[in-house]
């Protein structure tokens, strides 16, 4: 489902004397449907960078990143938008939403943009929020006012609302209490079971070992670290 071939990436900091910082070279990785792969490596080794490259959030200098039939490296913006809409989900650590939109709508949005009936989408959102223990009295409020843990759970609910065939998870269990952590892990297992290809970053090693089929050490492809 996700095929990464020989990708490289560097940052050019024009405002700091045009310093070129190579951050990745020669990385290849393949994830099939129903598989969950953990990215590992020391902080700064490029786990998040690779994740963002797959999502199209960072440009890739060379190589190929196939998600389904789309090569993210060469795809036009609207192809990436379409990819993100129906194929590739991303649960980041940070919730970025339009102020004033209710939590329920934030969670239902991925379903609404793919043409799901509002009633069905709202029902699904309610089920997810309920499962992640977001109290019903908060559903009509904007999540921007929520605590860190609550925002994280809203983010997860949103990320799991639509059944993406490919999922990127950035620290999905960080700042969660044991009950909610267990719920999130169960949701990831369910996603695997329905055939989602998953790439994740987990600092929670117990969680990683529990749900990931294998690990991928990005350090090996980080120029300057690999040596």
């Amino acid at each position: 489902m996700i095929q990464i071939e020989n990708v490289s990436k560097s940052f050019t900091l024009h405002n700091q004397g045009a310093a070129v910082i190579p951050v990745m070279a020669g990385a290849s990785l393949s994830v099939t449907a129903g598989e969950c792969v953990a990215l590992v490596g020391a902080s700064g080794s490029g786990k998040s960078t690779l994740m963002r490259m797959i999502y199209g959030n960072y440009l890739t200098a060379s190589g190929r990143i196939m998600v389904g039939d789309t090569d993210v490296v060469t795809a036009a913006p609207r192809e990436i938008i379409e990819l993100r809409r129906r194929t590739l989900g991303y649960v980041s650590q940070f919730l970025r939403v339009v102020p004033r939109v209710s939590t329920l709508d934030v969670v239902a949005e991925p379903l609404l943009v793919t043409g799901t009936d509002r009633e069905i989408a709202t029902e699904k959102a309610k089920t997810l929020l309920d499962r992640l223990n977001i109290p019903e009295r908060l559903w009509q409020l904007s999540p921007t006012t929520f605590s860190g843990g609550e925002q994280q759970r809203v983010n997860i609910a949103r990320g799991f609302a639509y059944p993406y065939p490919a999922l990127l998870l950035d620290e999905p269990t960080a700042s969660l209490d044991p009950t909610n952590r267990a719920t999130v892990l169960a949701m990831i297992v369910e996603a695997k079971a329905r055939g989602a290809a998953i790439i994740g970053i987990f600092h929670d090693h117990a969680a990683r070992d529990e749900i990931c089929d294998r690990q991928f050490d990005v350090t090996a492809f980080t120029p300057g670290l690999a040596a």
């Binding site: 940052f11 900091l13 024009h14 405002n15 045009a18 199209g56 959030n57 960072y58 440009l59 913006p77």
Partner: peptide
Amino acid sequence: AGLTDQVLDDPQHAYTQL
């Protein structure tokens, strides 16, 4: 030019970075 979050998070041109 590009995807909004890509241009904002990984700007390529000196001016955009600034």
